[in-house]
Amino acid sequence: MDVFTFAIERRLADNSGFPESRFEEAMSLSNEQVTEIAHLARLQVDQADLPEYARNLSDILSFVDAMNAMETDSVEPLAHPLEMPQRLREDAVTEENQREQFQAVAPQVEAGLYLVPRVIE
């Protein structure tokens, strides 16, 4: 298994066209950066777990940086494997109201409304 990692690391080392600054950043995320990413993702992460997340995320980002060994300027990105256009339908009402059924699984509802902590004082 390790030979794959090794091969990818070797490719990274050989790669001269790599944007150095971002590479450095990606190689090791700080605890502060992890905190910021977790905030963007609205995830509570315990302070004590930050170093491990920072290490894991840095490893993953270093690993995916292997992609940069390949020159892709002239390559068209592929979003859908079959490259099918999005299917359209008539703009007609097809769903019936199932509010009660859907709200039956909600943590907290009242009078057909989802309840959350007060947002506006």
């Binding site: 944007p19 971002r22 995916v64 992609m67 940069n68 390949m70 892709t72 390559v75 068209e76 990105p77 592929l78 979003a79 494997p81």
Partner: peptide, 15 residues
Amino acid sequence: DAYYLKAQKMRRLIK
């Protein structure tokens, strides 16, 4: 661009 777009380009090469 550096990640998602790059990965989608890799995806084209793989296909």
